[in-house]
Design a protein around this nucleic acid. Structure first.
Length: 237
DNA sequence: AACCAGGACGTGA
DNA sequence: TCACGTCATGGT
């Protein structure tokens, strides 16, 4: 089977096994009245999500906070941020940096990430979501990569889930799964893995969103660095 | 009680 | 270019 065919087959297998994931998993959604509601992030069929700037912003913030960090730690940081009203551009820019760092403490690397979030907020103040959504993917990607704290994976998460531009996200699990399956080398560079996926698949936003989410779902179960629990087998061809 | 998690940056070779 | 050190909390 060609690598291209395997990429397709793996997706179908994962989708059949786990079902649609409905990513990005956002912790709180703001309704019209402005209050926050808990939300596990499962939005099957709602391909227009996210709708509002506050939701898009929270996705961007989450993408930064989750860098090399467990998602549960990010969730409590987001809840803490929401409590201080800092899930807004003004909130991020006006907060004292010590206060901002304290609010995101549970996500780890909190001093770095506090700086990164302010860089992100300044960027979004200059280029609104509305502007960014009108620009081509590569232009936005280059702009994002010029923000200190946004690397290739974070940029692609923002593109794919907040800006709804199809850009395949390559994370630790993506690399680990494919290299353990022998499809790619053991230390692949980001862009080559991204090109492999993007050249093997139809250029479809929802497909890219689901595929990455499924790889993370599967990776968490079976492709930890050090697997724990009773699950230690591969469901994937 | 080490080990690891949905990375990115700065540095030196 | 690229390998390596740094950043840090919370679950297992």
């Amino acid at each position: 089977m060609t690598p291209r065919k395997r990429i397709e087959t793996i997706y179908l297998t994962l989708l059949k096994t786990y079902g649609p994931q409905g990513w990005w998993p956002i912790s709180f959604r703001r309704d019209r009245s402005g209050k926050h509601e808990g939300d596990g992030g499962y939005h099957p069929g709602d391909y227009r999500y996210p709708h509002h700037d506050s939701q898009k912003l929270e996705i961007c913030i989450g993408a930064v906070l989750t860098q090399n960090t467990n998602w549960n730690n990010v969730l409590s940081a987001l809840a803490s941020l929401a409590g201080t009203g800092a899930i807004s551009l003004n909130g991020l820019l006006e907060a004292e940096k010590e206060q901002l760092a304290l609010a995101i403490k549970s996500a780890g690397y909190y001093n770095q990430k506090a700086r990164y979030l302010r860089n992100l907020a300044r960027f979004l103040q200059k280029y609104s979501f509305e502007k960014l959504e009108r620009l081509p993917r590569e232009s936005v990607r280059d702009l994002l990569l010029n923000v200190k704290g946004i690397g290739p994976e974070t940029a692609d998460c923002i593109l794919l889930y907040a800006l709804k531009k199809s850009s395949f996200v390559v994370d630790t699990y993506t690399k680990r799964i494919l290299s353990r399956l022998g499809i790619i080398s053991s230390n692949p560079d980001y862009d080559s893995v991204q090109r492999l996926f993007e050249s093997s698949l139809a250029n479809d936003l929802h497909l890219f969103q689901e595929y990455h989410a499924l790889l993370v779902r599967h990776g968490k179960k079976f492709y930890r660095k050090k697997p724990y629990g009773d699950q230690d087998r591969l469901l994937v061809p």
